Simulated scan of single mutants.
Amino acid sequence: MRVSLRSLAAAVLLAFAVAVSAPVLAQQPSSVNPTASSVKEQQLLEALRAGTPGTGTTLSGRITIPDQRAANLIQPQGQAWRVFHQGTMHWVGGIAILGMLAVLVAFYLFRGRIMIHKGPAGIRILRFTTFERLVHWMTAGCFLVLALTGLNITFGKYLLLPLFGEGGFHAVASLGKYAHNYLAWPFMLGLVFMFLVWVVHNIPNSIDMEWLKQGGGLLKPGVHPPAKKFNAGQKGIFWAVIIGGGLLSVSGFFLIFPATADGVLALQFWNIVHGLVAVLLIAIMIAHIYIGSVGMEGAADAMTSGEVDLNWAKEHHSLWVQEEASKGRINPGALGQPAE
C-alpha cells in the first residue's frame, strides 16, 4: 500500500512539472543560432567610419603574442583592394587585351600584310647573333607562360572552371602556380641580358622623331623612313619590356616572399602594380608578335635564322645597313641593288 502511494505521488509531481514547463518550452525556438548576437562585418566597418577611438586605420583586438599585427580584425583598405581585384582588374585586362586584338584585326583589314616593296633581294645579312636570339627566346618563352598562368589567376575561374570542372581547374591552377613562380627567375635573367646587349641601340634620338612623323612607314606602302638597328617603334617595345618587366620582377618578388614586404598594405599595393603592368605588357607584346610574324614579310627571319633579306633591311633599317657596310660586314657589290 505504501509503495502504491509513493508511485501515485511521483506521478502527480511529474504531471505537475510537465504542466508548468510546457508554456516555457513552447516559447523556446526550435533551433538555436550561436552566432545570432555576434558582431557582423558591416557593423565593424560602420564603427570604423564613425571614428571609433583607438582604432586608427584598422579595427584591432587584444592579443598576447608578440606580433601586434595579428591584432588587426578588419583593414578597410582590404575592402578597396578586393573591389579592384575582383572588378576593376577584370575590366582593365579585358579592355587592354581584347582592345589590342581588335585594333590589330582592323589594321590588317585596312593595311594588309606589309610586304618587301621591291621583293626579296636573295642576299642575306646577319641581324642577330645566336646569343641574342637565345636571350630573346628564353625571355619570350618565359613571358608567354607567365602571361597565361597570370591571366588564369584573374580570369580562370570564369573561363576555365566551367570547362574543366573543379578538379581539372585545380590541377591546372596548381601547375600554373609553380610554373609562374619558377619561370619568373629566368625571365628576370633574360631582362638583364637584353638590357646589357641592346641598350646601346635603344637610346632615343632625332631620327626617331622623323620615323614617328612618317608613321614608321606602316600606313603607306613604299614609305620607308630611315632607321638604325632599332627604329622608334622597336625602341618603345624595348623600354616597355625593360621597365614593365622590372616592375613585374620587383612586385613579383614581394608576392613570392611576402615577409619581405612592409605589411599587408604594401602587399596589396604590389599586387595591384603586378596585375596592371602585366595586362598592359601582354597587350603590347601581342602587337609585337603580330608585327614580327604575320604582319610584316621577312621580319620573323631576324629571330629565327638570325639573317634578314637585304632589301628588307634597306627598307626598314637603311642607316643600320650603311653602318654594317662601313664595317665590312656587307659585300659592297650587294649595296648597288636598290631597295626601293
Rank of each mutant, 00 (worst) to 15 (best):
V3M: 03
V3N: 05
S4Y: 14
R6T: 09
A11C: 12
A17K: 09
A19D: 03
A22Q: 14
P23G: 13
S31K: 09
V32P: 04
S38D: 07
E46T: 09
P53L: 09
L59P: 02
G61Y: 06
R62Y: 10
I65H: 06
D67N: 06
R69C: 05
A71V: 00
N72F: 07
L73N: 10
L73I: 15
Q75W: 08
P76T: 08
Q79S: 15
A80L: 15
A80S: 14
H85L: 06
H90L: 15
H90A: 12
W91E: 14
V92K: 06
G94V: 09
G94T: 13
G94Q: 14
G94D: 14
G99A: 11
L104K: 09
M115T: 15
G119M: 01
R124G: 07
R124T: 12
I125D: 01
R127L: 05
R127E: 10
F128R: 01
F128N: 05
E132P: 00
H136D: 02
W137E: 02
M138H: 03
M138E: 09
C142I: 07
C142H: 05
V145F: 12
A147K: 09
L148H: 02
T149Y: 05
F155L: 00
K157I: 03
K157A: 06
L159P: 04
F169Y: 15
A173Y: 10
K177Y: 12
H180C: 09
N181G: 09
L183A: 01
L183M: 05
A184T: 11
P186K: 12
M188Y: 14
G190F: 00
L191W: 02
M194G: 09
F195W: 10
V197W: 06
V197P: 03
W198K: 13
V200M: 14
H201S: 14
S206M: 09
D208F: 00
E210F: 03
W211N: 02
G217Q: 11
L218W: 10
P221Q: 15
A227W: 04
A227F: 06
F230W: 07
A232I: 02
Q234F: 02
K235M: 11
F238S: 07
W239E: 08
I243W: 05
S249I: 08
S251A: 10
F253D: 04
F257H: 07
A261P: 03
A261E: 03
G263T: 04
G263Q: 04
V264W: 00
L267Q: 05
V273K: 05
H274R: 03
L280R: 02
I282F: 05
A283D: 01
A283P: 01
I284S: 08
I289P: 04
Y290P: 02
G292F: 01
A302Y: 01
A302E: 00
G306E: 03
E315W: 01
L319R: 12
W320C: 05
E323Q: 15
S326T: 10
G328Y: 11
R329D: 01
P338C: 04
A339H: 02
E340V: 14
